[in-house]
């Protein structure tokens, strides 16, 4: 059992979301940086997609009311347990009464708190993720408030090393001036002018303050133009879709985006790079690099393997600790 000590309208319970509810008009949702949540869960012996807390608003503090294993991953946030600094990407055990405090990130934007067993809220439409727009999932479909108490799914007691342990290889975070993400061309790519196609890949796009779990509005020096006006019927879109409304400045649809849209689409950011967007702070720059579908498939499969290898290595380590 943990108690949230700091409220905000942005910190939410998330897992891997609802990929199977799109036909209901429900966004996939889930952690914006899935790899970070997965790594935290794996360190604790949880399933990679167990529910944790996505923290976007700092400082964030929780009090543990029972002995609980936990891991902090994602953005590089100064983290302390009862004032004692914790290493980055670290898992350890908190005793009853101890307070975990996370400060604003020095690098990255979103931090994840995973808890042994995973947070126990009722699954809705197959997931525990909070859907703020639909008002369901997580804790009553809303962000976490001061005073909220959260229980964990009972987990098999399996010890962590006395002072904890962490990831030896960290998940990459954007540098101070921004990030480069890999994209595939989308349906209307060829309807953009040659100049627009060149600009899209050549120009740095500033992330404006209109950036949240639904979408990221970008701003570039020169806008993107079509060779002819398009009037598209509404169609399904996936997280990572880069739309270009008539004003010519792109919008990246993120995990809580509407499941259908009607604006022309120039590209789609590949799945493994969505987490880099999730960790990109407002005001820094995003660049788009074109890759092939084969390269995208390789990148996705490589990430899947990396997560499987981490899970295997952690399981071995934990077995050796018990032995």
């Amino acid at each position: 059992m943990i108690e949230v000590l700091t409220g905000s309208t942005l910190n939410t319970i998330q897992d891997f979301g609802r990929a199977h509810a799109m036909t209901l008009g429900v966004a996939r949702g889930g952690a914006m940086d899935r790899l970070a949540l997965a790594c935290g869960n794996i360190l604790l012996g949880n399933a990679p997609d167990a529910a944790g807390i996505e923290i976007v608003f700092f400082p964030f503090r929780v009090r543990f009311h029972t002995a609980t294993t936990f891991a902090v991953t994602g953005a590089e946030c100064p983290a302390t347990l009862d004032g004692q600094a914790l290493p980055k990407d670290w898992a350890t055990t908190a005793q009853p009464g101890q307070v975990l405090a996370l400060q604003a990130p020095a690098q990255g934007a979103r931090c994840y708190l995973a808890l042994g067993g995973g947070i126990d809220v009722p699954p809705v439409l197959g997931a525990r993720a909070t859907d703020l727009k639909g008002g369901f999932g997580g804790l009553d479909g809303r962000a976490l408030r001061k005073g909220d108490r959260l229980a964990c799914v009972p987990a098999l007691a399996s010890p962590l090393p006395h002072s904890g342990y962490g990831l030896s290889r960290r998940c990459p975070l954007p540098s101070s001036d921004g990030t480069t993400v890999r994209v595939l061309p989308a349906a209307e790519y060829d309807v953009f002018t040659t100049a627009a196609q060149t600009l899209f890949h050549g120009q740095a796009w500033r992330l404006t303050p209109s950036a949240n779990r639904m979408g990221y509005r970008l701003e570039g020096e020169t806008t993107l133009a079509l060779t002819r006006p398009l009037n598209l019927f509404s169609h399904g879109i996936v997280p990572g879709t880069v739309q270009v409304p008539p004003a010519g400045q792109p919008i990246i649809q993120m995990t809580d985006a509407n499941t259908c849209g009607g604006y022309p689409k120039i590209a789609t950011v590949i799945e493994p790079d969505l987490r880099l967007l999730a960790q990109t702070p407002v005001g820094t720059f995003i660049r788009f690099i074109a890759i092939t579908r084969e390269e995208a498939v390789d990148a996705i499969r490589a990430e899947t393997r990396a997560v499987q290898v981490l899970a295997r290595d952690v399981a071995r380590l934990r077995t050796s600790l018990t032995a």
């Binding site: 595939l184 061309p185 989308a186 349906a187 598209l232 019927f233 169609h235 399904g236 879109i237 996936v238 990572g240 879709t241 689409k265 789609t268 950011v269 590949i270 799945e271 579908r293 995208a296 498939v297 996705i300």
Partner: peptide
């Protein structure tokens, strides 16, 4: 058309 690597959009309009 491709909607990323893991999705395809069939447009019959």
């Amino acid at each position: 058309s491709m909607a990323g690597a893991g999705a395809l959009l069939l447009d019959a309009a």
